[in-house]
Write a protein that binds this DNA or RNA. Structure first.
Lengths: 208, 208
DNA sequence: GATAAACAGTGACAATTGTTACATTGCTTT
DNA sequence: AAAGCAATGTAACAATTGTCACTGTTTATC
């Protein structure tokens, strides 16, 4: 187990990797599994080895709102910070592509902050970059209308998967932007007319 | 200087307070001063002794979007985290009521994390609570229409100042919610008819 | 191959929000 | 008291977004 961790988390010191290997457990989840729910207590800090997790916010009426993806080499910022206070989760996390996760028990997360410089830096950096990402998300809803938000959303997806072919239905997009399918269809059509995308079934191609 | 710090930040250990006293500087700013701008490098972590600071996001067109207030006993989460990486600010911070601030130089902020347990916990806790606050803000824009957002906004203000008389003009509110004055006037009128608020000049009274 | 089920397109209309243009009110200044 | 200004009220209309109803079209299932 040592080798893959070292590869996926290159910044980790050798001692840290050994500590992880000795104390953390590896768990697998299937696409569709929900690994964290709003209101649920967080018992572990989660590091992603492989696969993809969607982190989103949910309201009382079942509305969803997409925040960001967790991918290999990344960690869940929320689980880190809530960890130290044994707090409830404020977010939902759903597996999008089968994942392997390193589960670090809460007490260790905290202990390592003092013991391993590379862990400390990883945690701080994770938190900072997620905070920035969330700020950008705020911008997109606070300042932009749905057409721009849609473009922003599609670009983030393309960045996250590293490809220009987005396997998304209009309904999925609508849910994640908390609007209706019809609105998304309408806006995508306009984008197609402007030559920004090409529309296929379950597949949106980013052209520009 | 020792005594007031101890009073305003009761969780700080005696050694930490001494370290602050020996190394940090106190600065004052007047209402209206902007102490942090988007894009500016952050050189200090900011702790608030007295007064009130508004933290908000600004877009290219001058639109504003209110995020939260910093008040006595609190610290700027952004300045803490960016600190360690010498990052640019992603937010604006404007003085609302004359403030006295403790400015902690970047290198110390980082060093103390290892040396002072109470500093470490303060930083982590600050970050966690701001993250949660920002998540709530996302909820309010993602899931709610302007009428509910306005109510949410007024309540947050009332909580922040601990009173029910909000000295705000419609224009100010409109700016902070990134909409227009007319919309706010319209919605406030409706709220008045529903008996939720009483409207006076430059003064909105929360009834419920 | 027939039949669902999911996905997508579209027109019509409602509701909300944004914009324009003025009128009015109350406070401050001289 | 008159003038001036900031704050507020409001009507009318435009633009965006949300909703409903219905039509195809493709994919999956029996």
């Amino acid at each position: 187990m040592l080798d893959p961790i070292k590869k996926i988390f290159p910044s980790f010191s050798t001692e840290l990797v050994k500590d992880i290997d000795a104390n953390a457990s590896i768990q697998s989840f299937k696409a569709g599994d929900i690994i964290m729910r709003t209101g649920q207590y967080i018992k572990n800090t989660v590091l992603v080895i492989s696969g993809k997790i969607k982190v989103y916010r949910e309201d009382e009426n079942g509305g969803e709102f997409f925040m960001y993806y967790l991918q290999p080499g990344q960690a869940c910022a929320i689980s880190m910070i809530c960890a130290t206070k044994n707090e409830k989760s404020q977010i939902m996390a759903k597996v999008v592509e089968d994942v392997e996760l390193i589960m670090v028990p809460l007490p260790l997360m905290d202990k390592w902050m003092m013991q391993h410089r590379s862990w400390y830096e990883f945690v701080i950096d994770t938190y900072r970059s997620r905070f920035e990402e969330v700020l950008e998300v705020i911008d997109s809803i606070a300042f932009r209308a749905m057409d721009e938000r849609l473009e922003f959303y599609l670009k983030r997806h393309a960045d996250a998967c590293g490809c220009k072919e987005l396997k998304l239905s209009h309904q999925e997009i609508a849910s994640e932007l908390n609007t209706s399918r019809e609105v998304i269809s309408r806006l995508l059509k306009k984008m197609e007319q402007r030559g920004i995308v090409a529309l296929h079934r379950n597949n949106i191609e980013l052209l520009k």
